[in-house]
Design a protein around this nucleic acid. Sequence first.
DNA 1: TACGATAGAAGTACACCGTACGAGAAATAA
DNA 2: TTATTTCTCGTACGGTGTACTTCTATCGTA
Lengths: 281, 281
Amino acid sequence: MAADDEDPDELDDLWTPFLATRPEDRRAARLREHVEEDIKRGRGRGRAHPPRRAAALSRDQIVRTAIKVADADGAEAVSMRRIARDLNAGTMSLYWHIASKEELLDRMIDMVQGELPAPEPSGDWRADLSVLARNTRTALHRHRWMIAFLGGRPSLSPKSLQNVERALSTLDGLGLDKATAMTAVMTIVTYVLGAVTREVQEMNTERFVQEQFGDLTDAEKEAMAREFVDRVRATGRFPHLAALIADGIDPDSPDTRDERFEFGLTCLLDGFAARLPASPS
Amino acid sequence: MAADDEDPDELDDLWTPFLATRPEDRRAARLREHVEEDIKRGRGRGRAHPPRRAAALSRDQIVRTAIKVADADGAEAVSMRRIARDLNAGTMSLYWHIASKEELLDRMIDMVQGELPAPEPSGDWRADLSVLARNTRTALHRHRWMIAFLGGRPSLSPKSLQNVERALSTLDGLGLDKATAMTAVMTIVTYVLGAVTREVQEMNTERFVQEQFGDLTDAEKEAMAREFVDRVRATGRFPHLAALIADGIDPDSPDTRDERFEFGLTCLLDGFAARLPASPS
DNA sequence: TACGATAGAAGTACACCGTACGAGAAATAA
DNA sequence: TTATTTCTCGTACGGTGTACTTCTATCGTA
């Protein structure tokens, strides 16, 4: 929970040009000016001037509390004012460390990507890819708000590159050509993304029902559900769904979520296996 | 583009209790009152009172122009004021036909679901599921904003039920038990969702780069790209990615998008096939 | 010690958002 | 005509992101 400084901004610099940092970013502009000035004065590289003042706020801190807010109260609760309040800071103070809310969102996503554990490759690519998939799923579930953001944001971020790199190393020595390996990894991640999106949708529905009908007794709720099913059946337009429900199968049941996830995952991996050149077990 | 009234609100009624319609929805409340009143007076069902005034606005119209706005200017352009302006109406007029923006979003999603073509089952389940997947993909691409909304909204909507129902009928007579068939369909849809999310992310990145560096000459752009790749390589942290790029493979290349999609799809279908009890071809 | 210079924090203000409320216009039933 | 009901829409409120500005704490330097 404390120091996470294995990565002293080296990768971050890579990212910067593609970040939602608009020209108005005064801090970046300042820094750039100073570097140039210092170069002119022959001071060489390194921190141009030493920092003048101990910063009460840090970018990491901001991103972290933004994530905390999103985790606790959902994506729509993430506002600059709210984050500043949680930090006991002025709203506009955040803008010294971050150019825009968009940049903040990108950095939130990146930080979550960094949470993904990096297990040692075991030599069994199926097992390794499964672990990757499952880890990604739990990370996405821990931060459900990400799903809502992902579709609207660009994709490149240093931590995600790192994760792809790690996943690729899992497939080393299988005789796969590089392009296929890459496609396989992306396909897995893609599947996880879709699966969790779907799951989060279901959970949204559950939450909605809870909010809307939470004050009903269990009997009333059951009656409502039965009445709904009857109405669905009465339309005669959904014979297959009706049959499913008649058999007591709820396609959206939380109990079968893990099962469904594993089903799709195994199917994918089987498909990969069938495409491998030739390999034992 | 004109009348689409194959479905006179019969299914919509099913949906209503789960829609983002809060108690303040005056119209719904009114209608309910009238129905009750009429029942008391023994008038039976049907439109309680004939409509008193020709409505200049209709719900369908509102949803349609909302979709048009989102298609043209993205998800963030969808605001009540903007839609009203495009309809030459007062902003608050919309609220007679729709309880909230959330309901509008749900209805936009539902309407797009209704656009999905319903091809006749061919008897070849692989082909049929592929067609389903590809149709879903192109629909999602035609309305990229959906990806951004989907994760934040509940899932049930009449048209989506209809689509699931149709997909299930595709798998009839394969000897699959109902639950497995359902899981298979959901898995396909899930995969498509993830794939398109990923693709939309890439396109967001492309758009961002275009906006940010669009005024550069091609040579400059190429130089920037080369410099970026060099910096990535220089970190030494991404040997696999570096190797990919060295081979001229861009994982995010638009040219390979269809290929990637088909790869995952075939893998999935192969996985299904391996799980079928026993079946020729 | 005193003194710019400056990194960083924060207040004010503006344009835009969703929408509660209520007043008005239009249309029909009586 | 009048009463009633459907539908439209202007106003206003509290929220949002953020441009611009001002203030302050701290440093290097003399």
